[in-house]
Design a protein around this nucleic acid. Structure first.
Lengths: 334, 334
DNA sequence: CCTCCGGCGACAAACGTTTTAACAACGTTG
DNA sequence: CAACGTTGTTAAAACGTTTGTCGCCGGAGG
């Protein structure tokens, strides 16, 4: 019924509890014959170490917390897969927290992480407020920022260069001979949207064009529905650009649909490029050119940094890693 | 630096540790004035309960384990969102395990859950082997099966009726006047694929047609890429059905793309229906008819059952809940 | 023969909480 | 006034590990 304790294992193997603990944690410290006896007892009793007791005594756990903004977004899903894979390889469990963009939920998740005494936290912060993270650091919990630049020195962060990404996208459109250019984006407050716009401006400037000629439409959400509405607006305004850059693939898919329904040919009449290179970008009726981010890798590397900081606090050097995005050309751009 | 313990809080408030514990867990047991003093001390010291110590002493934790087959699949993502929302409302943390379809990883995840002494486990088993779950139940950890019928009585399970879903889909195609019918599916071993085919057969029989006339193409994966290959095969065989039912939306999106590229009109020449009603079903060039499953709800209800079993073991009655899927008609079917 | 040393285990003291039994203070009741 | 229930608090004993100290034993060196 109840799980056997280390004490019962010890009794069965004819050793002391401490020795069983040594077999579990420092097998090299215990003589071969004794070790085998203990291991046999463990198997026979179906012993499973009590993680809480271990955490309590050792002062640290084998879990990390992962707080994301929206687990329904393929971007975060890929990140989570990367985190989970590496953590699980290293024997760590991942506690998942989904903030849904709400400060309150994020705060609650961080509290849970603190109660669980997680070894470290990976977080894509939903706001710019660094204070709440202090709460964790004060308790000796390491923090690595994910898809967010470090808000101050002295911490690890991994991100993807969104400025470069924006420049890549618009550069590609310009090299295709685009005249009038459009940028369909999400809420102005979102850092990613701002950075990608900045990249677009840089590409225009580099081509000797005036950045201000970029026609920008800002939608309240970054969904396919919003994208379709944006396309309808463009059509009814009668100001259809030659080429459109969307701040993410969901928007782009919506725009694509809106254009096709109105009989606009893609890429014949309008070139279209998205961002993120989600799986569905290649599955749409006209496969979508996009900017690929190393999403899975983002999660993996963030976890790597976190575990290094936890396991080697003295030799660990904080790092801010910035990945570079790639251009993926498909049918939707010439 | 270190987090304050209950003892320090007690000292500051001038009470005993036991009283602090009472404030935390049974506030009604302690006099108003004392409670306020303790609460003030908690705030001032930034005290956060040590979850492991609590678990150790109380004998059970406030965490549940969630083991899914593929966190990259939108279906499981939605389930996870439902689980996370309810669990977090009830003060439970969710430990996420992704088995990636591998028995080994699943086993490892279950071991982690056992070590953490999770209160209960939600699992979409990747195989049909019920033994491993015994390991958990023997330790008094409740288990609820997700998107899987109960493999024996005496446990909770939530699922969606895939037979009904298959019948709905094919019934809809038939009511549109379809003549030749195709079913594009995944590996034969997958339960969902089998059940959906069974439903398709039932619908054919109900319409007075011979179930064997259903042209079936089984692909090794259930991805958009596989769907496109299936469409190409149909086209090269020159045996294009009037209507096609796909075992999931990813396959359907691939088929759609393959057909459109070949100049086949959808739904003009061929009607097409998918399964799952993922977000992208409505965002494709021709929006996709599909079978909607209450995915988020699935996760929520499973969690509800699990927590009920944990919190009221004596009054709890095991339940096998079977949801019914819905038909969603969009442009891809007449 | 005595000492020293290395290797292996045993012992016991924590870690921070929950919980039970006991207790003190204080009306209420017979 | 004694007996008694109520209410609020305390003291102390767990829970299952980890870990530092210590002791035992056998062999090597003096």
């Amino acid at each position: 019924m109840r799980t056997a304790s280390i004490k019962e294992v010890a009794a069965r193997a004819g050793v002391s509890p401490g020795t069983v603990s040594n077999v579990l944690n420092r097998p090299e410290k215990v003589a071969g014959e004794t070790r085998e006896r203990v291991e046999a007892a463990i198997r026979e009793l179906g012993f499973v170490r009590h993680g809480s007791a271990s955490t309590l005594r050792a002062g640290h756990s084998r879990t990390i917390g992962l707080s994301v903004i929206d687990i329904g977004n393929p971007f975060f899903t890929d990140v989570a897969a990367g985190v989970e894979d590496l953590a699980s390889d290293r024997g760590y469990a991942v506690i998942l927290g989904n903030s849904s963009g709400s400060r309150l939920k994020e705060e609650r998740n961080l509290l849970v992480f603190a109660e669980q005494r997680v070894r470290g936290v990976l977080i894509t912060p939903s706001g710019e407020d660094p204070n709440r993270l202090e709460l964790l650091r004060d308790r000796g919990i390491c923090v690595v920022l994910v898809d967010h630049p470090a808000d101050r020195s002295g911490q690890c962060a991994v991100a993807v260069n969104d400025v470069t990404g924006g420049a890549l996208a618009v550069g590609h459109l310009l090299s295709g001979g685009a005249g009038r250019l459009g940028y369909i984006t999400g809420p102005a407050a979102i850092r990613q949207c701002k950075d990608r716009r900045r990249g677009a401006h840089q590409a225009l400037a580099a081509a000797g064009r005036d950045p201000h000629e970029l026609l920008e439409i800002s939608m309240p959400a970054m969904t396919a529905k919003a994208g379709q509405e944006a396309a309808e607006k463009l059509l009814s305004d009668g100001a259809l650009p030659d080429a459109i850059f969307c701040a993410n693939d969901l928007l782009a898919l919506g725009v694509l649909r809106g254009l096709l329904q109105a009989g606009v040919r893609v890429p014949g009449d309008v070139s279209l490029i998205g961002y993120d290179d989600i799986d569905f970008a290649s599955a749409s009726a006209v496969s979508l050119s996009s900017i690929r981010q190393p999403t899975y890798q983002l999660g993996r590397v963030a976890t790597e940094l976190l575990l290094d900081e936890c396991d080697n606090p003295e030799t660990h050097a904080h790092q801010q890693i910035m990945f570079q995005p790639d251009l993926v050309v498909r049918e939707s751009t010439r």
